[in-house]
């Protein structure tokens, strides 16, 4: 028993040791010049740059938080649009046969296209501004949202549907009162997938063509040969992605709690 509890304690400490030792090794690699500073910046340099970028617009023309905010704004607008259109569409496709029949082929064409492949066409259509970014993120988010909403309705336990039918519920009522609530967990499962796809696509779009945003920040780092900028950009993208994920998770829990009461 004693051995067991020390074991769990060790297992709880190791993750911190692991991350800490990685940071130290990383720092040492740069300090000892194993990898030259022109190729890799140390963690401390990255932190220093982050603090500097909090209130300096040099050398890329924007504060780091402004870049993050620009990316966040683009991502959220496109994402919310994808939800507003994708969820009802997917749910309806799952329940109403004619809608399924008419929309599905188009969807099957859209589905295998990697969202990043839309970037050139989008830039060609909209230029490098906000609307183009929103459009790409919308497309990227739409596919998983529709698929999950569709599957959610399809997976409704047929017993519930039959029961509702014996009570004389109309097709529409069954859809609203039975299928939609039971599809919700699946719908929300799709939201997280959609989010990570959208975020990744946005980064790609910003790397290729943008005048602000975190992807643009990274590109500037590459042009200026400043590895600390690139790494800071990557870290900020990861961090912002996590933050959005948490927000979506919170909203999701609220909604589920509200709807299933």
């Amino acid at each position: 028993m004693g051995k067991k509890s020390t074991n769990t304690l060790v297992l709880r400490i190791i993750p911190y040791v692991s991350i800490l030792s990685c940071l130290i090794i990383w720092q040492l690699i740069v300090v000892l010049n194993i990898v030259p500073n022109t190729l890799l910046a140390s963690p401390l340099q990255v932190i220093k740059l982050f603090i500097y970028k909090l209130n300096h617009t040099q050398p890329d023309g924007g504060l780091i938080l402004v870049h993050a905010f620009v990316s966040l704004k683009e991502a959220l607008i496109g994402y919310v649009l994808a939800l507003l259109i994708g969820i009802p569409l997917g749910l309806a496709m799952g329940w109403f046969k004619p809608i399924d029949g008419l929309i599905r082929p188009l969807f099957e064409i859209l589905r295998p296209i990697p969202p990043v492949a839309w970037i050139p066409l989008t830039i060609f259509w909209f230029g490098i501004g906000l609307s183009g970014k929103v459009f790409i993120i919308f497309l990227a988010g739409l596919v998983p949202v529709v698929i999950n909403s569709y599957t959610g309705v399809r997976m409704t336990n047929p017993v519930y549907i039959r029961m509702a039918r014996t009570y004389g519920a109309t097709k529409w009522r069954i859809f609203i009162d039975v299928c939609v609530p039971s599809a919700l967990p699946m719908v929300f499962g799709g939201l997280q997938v959609a989010l990570s796809v959208s975020w990744m696509t946005l980064v790609a779009a910003e790397l290729i063509a943008a005048d602000s945003g975190l992807g643009f920040f990274i590109t500037m780092g590459q042009r200026l040969l400043m590895p600390d900028m690139i790494i800071l950009g990557i870290l900020m993208i990861g961090l912002t992605g996590v933050v959005i994920g948490i927000i979506v998770d919170k909203v999701e829990k609220r909604l589920v709690a509200g709807m299933w009461r």
Binding site: L11, I14, P15, S18, I19, S196, V203, Q222
Partner: peptide
């Protein structure tokens, strides 16, 4: 316990973001 935290740290960074580096 050794690998998971590092993996979790890398996971949210889209691979494309690494292209410049």
């Amino acid at each position: 316990a050794w690998i998971k935290p590092i993996f979790d740290l890398f996971k949210p960074m889209p691979p494309i973001a690494w292209i410049s580096l």
